[in-house]
């Protein structure tokens, strides 16, 4: 029978101008780092920014940003608290540091629940950190958040690109807007992103080098903004997305 939660989700995003899901088939390629840093950069440019961590099995953005000691407010639903100017929502508010062993259909249900109860205030950008893969979460985000656009991350590795190609084909088939492809963790000169991938009709946004100092900046928004990673990302989005 009818699930009433589905009918309230679009309303939850009505005051959000642009919704960007940071995705990319494989794990460990820098999706969360990109999503969190992107949110920081946008907030730095005085855009009203939100960050939603939808990686329920491996939530990471709270670690990257160093979010601690905040909890959502209840106001006819849940209002995400602000961290460094970013409205931040994560399942970790409810799981604490405990693991959440969820199967696919339950992840789906939890996504529906979070989307149905979270009331985003006026935002210029809502960044969504996606889990790896093209499974339930990607399909749910596409199904439930009508205006979502994808920003795809890959590494120079052919392994990552092969997986991304599959995701891109799914997104193309479903008619989803893809902002572009970001190459992360580059170590050699020149982009390694294959022409094959670029021939699928999606803009190439640019490359970010492997940043050996990034690890030391984790947990501190001020330090993160000073990394080469953030500087390169900021330049790319300033030219291509803003």
């Amino acid at each position: 029978m009818m699930d009433p939660r589905l009918n309230v989700i679009n309303k939850r995003f009505q005051n959000v101008k642009k919704i960007i899901a940071v995705s990319g088939g494989k794990g460990g390629i820098g999706k969360s780092q990109t999503a969190a840093s992107l949110a920081l950069c946008l907030a730095k440019h005085n855009y009203r920014t939100g960050l939603l961590d939808l990686d329920f099995c491996g939530p990471s953005t709270h670690v990257i940003l160093g979010v601690e000691g905040i909890y959502p407010e209840e106001e006819k639903g849940i209002v995400p608290p602000k961290f460094n100017g970013i409205s931040f929502m994560s399942i970790t508010y409810y799981t604490g540091n405990n693991p959440s062993p969820l199967r696919g259909s339950e992840i789906s249900n939890a996504i529906i629940e979070i989307l149905a109860i979270t009331r985003w205030e006026d935002l210029d950008f809502l960044i969504i950190d996606m889990p790896p893969g093209t499974g339930d979460p990607v399909l749910d985000v596409i199904r439930l958040i009508k205006r979502v656009e994808f920003l795809l991350v890959t590494t120079p590795s052919r392994v990552a690109q092969e997986v991304l190609k599959r995701e891109l084909k799914v997104l193309n088939e479903l008619g989803i807007t893809v902002i572009g492809i970001l190459e992360n963790m580059k170590t050699k000169k020149g982009s390694q992103v294959a022409s094959e991938l670029l021939n699928l009709g999606v803009p190439f946004l640019g490359s970010i080098d492997f940043d050996y100092d990034l690890e030391d900046a984790l947990g501190s928004p001020a330090k993160l903004l000073q990394t080469d990673f953030a500087a390169q990302l900021d330049q790319i989005i300033s030219q291509k997305c803003l």
Binding site: M2, D3, Y94, N98, S100, L102, N109, A110, E113, I114
Partner: peptide
């Protein structure tokens, strides 16, 4: 707030596993 986090806090009373199915009593429907 998020019923699925039951898997974080509830365990099978017999074997202690967090891998259980919610066979009824989950969700909302008209």
């Amino acid at each position: 707030f998020v019923p699925e986090v039951a898997h974080v806090y509830v365990r099978c009373p017999r074997c202690g596993s967090p891998d259980f199915e919610i066979t009824s009593g989950r969700g909302v429907w008209i």
